[in-house]
Design a protein around this nucleic acid. Structure first.
Lengths: 135, 135
DNA sequence: ATTATATTAATAATCGTTCCGATTACTGTT
DNA sequence: AACAGTAATCGGAACGATTATTAATATAAT
């Protein structure tokens, strides 16, 4: 992306980070834009996107992955977990028992009505793993 | 969507479901389109989308949610889990210990190099819960 | 076969996001 | 203080995935 280059500071970027730090919701780009527009009347959406990706690159911000850009489907309708390879992007089912107890555990930490959960594991699939060791 | 109406059969929809059953990857819409295009030369993308949503509605197919349609961000960069309200769509952090052992467990069921995981819990947030009981 | 209506194909529209060219604002150097 | 170099900005166009609209077609029931 911008690797190796040094980052300059900017009021916009500082504000974006600050805004993100003082909110405990998980804002969308659009929300941040609404918030900061009055303060920076000429602010553009692109600026938010660019700065968020820089901040993410710097490790100051987390982008909560929506997995990938496109939807995926499966005919296996029973609950089960997924593994996603960070190298090739493939997705596989995990033949691993579903931990219903996690719902109960989560319930203890909130006053939410926790009904179900999903787990996505990340790493390298067997193919990509052997490719990595090859070179 | 199409609620209340009865479903007719169609060759296209039957094929889509069959295709989904015989593949153990988690196809994207585009991939299915590529696969079925030779068979149905006049097939259009809209048909795939519409049928997948019908099949999902019927419970025959799972749409692997990418969370929501737009990206979300947070300044809390430590690992932690998330709760998503299925009613209002809000997202909150869960103050719950991270279960690193799940990675080990997942590793036992595959030959993947599992490095990390995400858990998304779903249900009703406290606000929506009280609204539900109100009416 | 006729009829009613779900399904299709094609296309336009939408939504979130990224990319681009032109301009502006820093930062360090004479 | 003027300069060059370059990052950061804006605005809008472009993009890819998805949804909505329409007229034509296919399916199931009578």
């Amino acid at each position: 992306m911008n690797s190796g280059t040094s980052y300059r500071q900017s009021r916009q970027r500082r504000r974006i980070l600050q805004l993100l730090k003082e909110t405990h919701t998980h804002p969308t780009v659009d929300w941040m834009y609404q918030q900061l527009k009055p303060e920076f009347p000429k602010l553009s959406l692109g600026t938010i996107y660019r700065n968020l990706s820089i901040l993410t690159e710097q490790g100051l911000v987390n982008k909560i992955k929506s997995g990938s850009t496109f939807d995926r489907f499966e005919a296996n309708t029973g609950t089960h977990y997924h593994f996603i390879c960070e190298s090739c992007g493939c997705m596989q089912d995990l033949e691993m028992p579903v931990r219903k107890d996690l719902n109960d555990e989560a319930r203890q930490f909130t006053n939410f009505d926790v009904q179900k959960h999903q787990i996505h594991f990340f790493g390298l699939c067997s193919d990509c793993r052997s490719k990595k060791t090859a070179d």
